[in-house]
């Protein structure tokens, strides 16, 4: 509480001083631009939890704008790659399976509603959205050459202006490579925080602004009841839970399949992955951390009869059944798929 107070006071003082300075400066050079970012929070759909803003990188119109530019601009990379090379706008900012040079397959996660999440990457290795994009400058991704980046930024008056408006730095190319990466990552994080899912058929139904088909209705009953019991991890409106579970994809876990264990070093975290959202699934396949399933039908088949027991299998997966089976009928399975598809946004 105390520090918050102090923060506001010092913020107030600083603004006054900046304002004062600006006034004084005006007499000397009236053309100089003032750093005055506009702090804001995006409007949220009904029923959403509060957006998790960053204290060190609070959302501003200008930061978000810079992030939006950087997201699809090859300026950050030395190989022509952009964020959108993998996180493709037409695929709800997810993408085709990514295979790294070692042959490890990773499904490209959707970039939607990230501002409500507290942990990132499939195995939970990234706790801070502000810094996730810093990893993209590495040789495996953007392979960014620091001098080349600085020269490109120096020659680019648009970005000089955008960086100033977003963060108050006048000559971004004069910063260290690490600082440039941090600010770029901050701006990208702001852009991602501001990207809120557009309403789906099911959202409209929940808000009493639309109807659903009998198939979707029956699928909804399965999803939100003990019958299929999906909601315990995929709860609306986010359809994810900021925590990691072993949902039973396999009974022995090697390499990347160890999941959260690779981050925490705890055997009790073996095979656990962060629950992904279920919005826009029609565009975000292949499914699961390694993209092992291509269709939603395969996913449902897995939850119905493919769950494998191991020491860390989530207790919820046992339901009432010894045999780990849901015993869904063909109709049930089709209804669940219809329900999942009703979570697709009606527009991007």
């Amino acid at each position: 509480m105390e520090t918050r107070y102090l923060k506001w006071i010092s913020f107030g003082l600083l603004t006054t001083i900046v304002f004062g300075l600006a006034q004084c400066k005006k007499e000397i050079a009236s053309t100089e631009k003032v750093y005055a970012p506009s702090y804001y929070l995006p409007e949220l759909p009904q029923g959403y939890p509060p957006l998790i803003n960053s204290e060190k990188n609070p959302l501003t119109k200008e930061g978000e704008k810079l992030g939006a530019y950087l997201y699809s601009d090859p300026i950050l990379s030395s190989n022509g790659m952009t964020c959108t090379s993998c996180h493709q706008p037409a695929l709800s900012w997810s993408g085709p399976l990514y295979v790294n040079p070692k042959g490890i397959k990773t499904s490209v996660p959707i970039h939607l509603n990230l501002g409500f999440r507290t942990v990132f990457n499939w195995n939970g290795s990234a706790p801070d959205l502000d810094l996730v994009a810093k990893g993209d400058f590495e040789p495996e991704f953007f392979n960014t050459d620091s001098n080349e980046l600085k020269l490109k930024l120096q020659a680019n008056s648009l970005y000089q202006g955008l960086f100033f408006e977003a963060f108050g730095v006048k000559k971004v190319h004069q910063l260290t490579f690490d600082s440039i990466k941090t600010l770029a990552s901050y701006a990208l994080a702001q852009h991602l925080r501001a990207r809120i899912a557009k309403p789906s058929t099911f959202d409209l139904y929940r808000q009493r602004r639309g109807t659903i088909t009998p198939e979707i209705y029956r699928g909804m009953l399965l999803f939100f009841s003990e019958k299929a019991d999906c909601f315990h991890c995929h709860m609306e409106p986010m359809y994810c839970d900021n925590s990691a579970h072993n949902n039973g994809l396999q009974d022995n876990h090697e390499g990347v399949d160890k999941g959260l264990e690779l981050v925490t070093g705890k055997a009790s975290d073996r095979g656990k992955f962060i629950t992904p959202t279920l919005r826009n699934l029609s565009k975000t396949g292949p499914y699961m951390h390694d993209g092992r399933f291509t269709t939603l039908e395969e996913v449902i088949e897995f939850y119905d009869s493919g769950i494998k027991n191991s020491e860390t299998l989530d207790p919820i997966m046992f339901k009432r059944h010894e045999d780990l089976k849901l015993n869904l009928t063909q109709q049930d399975k089709a209804d669940l798929v219809s329900f999942l598809k009703s979570l697709n946004s009606l527009e991007e």
Binding site: P49, F116, S225
Partner: peptide, 25 residues
């Protein structure tokens, strides 16, 4: 409507309200 409280929702389809207790292992 915090994230935590949302996670505790007892679905309308099962009677509504919130989970009073989740005790798992």
């Amino acid at each position: 409507g915090t994230f935590e409280n949302n996670q505790m929702i007892w679905p309308t389809e099962m009677g509504g309200g919130y989970h009073f207790l989740k005790f798992e292992g």
